[in-house]
């Protein structure tokens, strides 16, 4: 039984402000976007209800499908890299190291910096004539000549992936580290006594135990990558030739151009995918035990 009884207090007053803010500034805009997606809503033209007109245009819009393909391909490449690197860093930080706190904070810093600012730094790193990336690869002999990072399709894709992994692997590290530290120490000790080597302990004992945390991190990173915007907006703005426009950026460009109806239709489709995935996320991470 709860400490305070129901009759005495009205607990819903306490959560009312929370719900008001979320309804007004998140749900209302989403419902509004849904309605707008059924309209012809272009600056300087009278609004007109066209039902699924925008959606039928979308189906035939090669640019839209390209942005969807890019987004999914980006997730397929970036998220596994983030998971791998993040988990490797976490395994390292879990060990007895000198200056562990400092190391942990260093890993955390890329996450704490606004991604628009770090993307700007990456843009300079990728500069064709004097950037750090080309300086390093030519001086280390990794490449014959400078790479056209932001001006070629493959280069731009790689550039975005690297900048994004740099920014988000720390998040995976923190989650996995928390999971690792919850693994009982005796278990690993026992495995060591049983003459298991380092790799065996990690893959056979530790990994299965942190599987739930890995799953949460994986889903979270996937959903977050689905809406990638800042890094791409700054690094390539969708170029070259629209090859790196994510779904979010594609919709944004229609809003920017004053076509709210069509931009909304793109957003609604993206939202539908994200919503499905977040339901899965909520289901996978079983939270009830805590409350």
């Amino acid at each position: 039984m709860s400490v305070l009884s129901k009759k005495e207090y009205r607990p819903y007053y306490f959560i009312a402000p929370l719900l008001v803010f979320i309804c007004l500034f998140i749900l209302l805009p989403i419902v509004g976007t849904l309605f707008t997606s059924l309209m012809r809503d272009v600056t300087f033209l009278p609004q007109k209800f066209i039902f699924l007109g925008n959606y039928s245009d979308l189906l035939r819009d090669e640019g839209f499908w390209r942005s969807m393909r890019f987004t999914l391909f980006f997730i397929a490449v970036a998220v596994p890299l983030e998971m791998l690197l993040g988990t490797a860093f976490a395994a390292l930080l879990d060990m007895e190291l000198p200056m562990r706190g400092f190391l942990r904070a260093c890993v955390l810093i890329p996450w704490a910096i606004p991604s628009a600012i770090s993307a700007k730094i990456w843009q300079l790193i990728y500069n064709y004539s004097y950037g750090l990336a080309n300086f390093l690869i030519t001086h280390l002999g990794l490449s014959q000549g400078p790479v056209n990072w932001l001006g070629s399709e493959g280069g731009a894709f790689a550039a975005i992936v690297i900048a994004d992994v740099w920014k988000t692997a720390p998040f995976v590290t923190l989650l996995v580290l928390a999971g690792l530290q919850a693994v009982p120490h005796d278990l690993r000790l026992q495995a060591k006594i049983d003459r298991a080597n380092f790799a065996q302990i990690f893959f056979r004992v530790t990994l299965p135990l942190i599987k739930p945390v890995l799953l949460v991190a994986l889903l979270f990173r996937t959903i977050d990558s689905l809406r990638i915007f800042d890094v791409i907006y700054v690094l390539t703005n969708g170029g070259p030739g629209g090859s790196t426009a994510s779904a979010s950026l594609y919709a944004y460009k229609y809003f920017l151009g004053g076509d709210f109806g069509y931009g909304s239709a793109v957003s609604v489709l993206l939202f539908a995918v994200a919503f499905g995935m977040s339901c899965l996320y909520v289901k996978v991470s079983k939270f009830e035990s805590e409350i």
Binding site: P29, I30, T33, T36, F229, Y252, G263, S264
Partner: peptide, 14 residues
Amino acid sequence: LAVSMFPQVSMIGY
């Protein structure tokens, strides 16, 4: 929790 996963682009227009 579900709300926090929504893409921001689906709100900005409205």
